[in-house]
């Protein structure tokens, strides 16, 4: 893995540290999850109110290799991003990207920074295709992913149940990692020039 920890500056001027998730982070990670609004927490893949589940989620499984980064401010985790890769089988060259940012740290460019780390890691691991899942109504996040070279691949009908019980469509966006990397570099330069924000993809993580 690259040179970590890294110190990065958010749009607000706050400096946070990006580094791989470590075993000692269990309690801090759990606190981060528990501080999320209930609706955001529902989009995690596991019930993170259960300590044993959070511990389990930190480990690789037989099916999945998980590369995780956290953004840390002081002693607090304020963001988490993960690259989920099949250990076996015909999807080994693909990876799902997931990113969740603490409520108080959204719209500060942190998701963009963490996605960049995931891209680097995906490249290092030889991943060829990355994909993300977004609720159909997350149009702002979708626009940004498209700007990075992601293309809408499939609409999964009634694939997401909201906290209120409704069924919504989910959009799967995919991107060749080499295209994504090239476009991200361009976008970073453009953002530096224009000071634009990267809306946080709120769905996912864990």
């Amino acid at each position: 893995m690259g040179p970590y920890p890294k110190t990065v500056r958010l749009k607000s001027g706050t400096e946070v540290i990006i580094r791989p998730l470590e075993k000692d982070d269990l309690e801090d990670l759990r606190s981060f999850y528990l501080d999320l609004p209930e609706e955001d927490r529902f989009y995690l893949r596991a019930d993170v109110t259960d300590r044993a589940v959070v511990a389990m989620q930190m480990e690789d499984s037989d099916a999945e290799e998980r590369t995780r980064f956290v953004a840390v401010l002081g002693n607090r985790i304020v963001g988490q991003a993960a690259l989920l890769r099949s250990r076996h089988g015909w999807l080994q060259h693909t990876s799902e990207l997931r990113c969740v940012i603490g409520h108080d740290y959204q719209h500060q460019g942190l998701a963009k920074i963490m996605l960049r780390e995931l891209f680097q890691e995906a490249t290092r691991q030889g991943v060829e295709i990355v994909f993300g899942k977004l609720a159909a109504e997350q149009t702002a996040a979708m626009r940004v992913l498209k700007g990075l070279g992601f293309k809408k691949a499939i609409v999964r009908r009634d694939h997401q149940r909201t906290l209120h019980g409704d069924l919504h469509d989910v959009v799967v966006l995919t991107c060749s990692i080499s295209d994504a990397w090239a476009r991200l570099e361009d976008l970073m330069h453009a953002m530096d020039d224009q000071g634009r924000e990267f809306p946080s993809p709120r769905r996912g993580a864990s």
Binding site: W90, L91, H93, T94, E128, I129, A153, I154
Partner: peptide
């Protein structure tokens, strides 16, 4: 529901589309 382009790699290393 749709097709994911190049999502499957066979034993020879060739990519195929995945039908969902």
């Amino acid at each position: 529901e749709g097709v994911l382009k190049g999502f499957v790699k066979d034993v020879q290393g060739n990519n195929h589309d995945l039908l969902i």
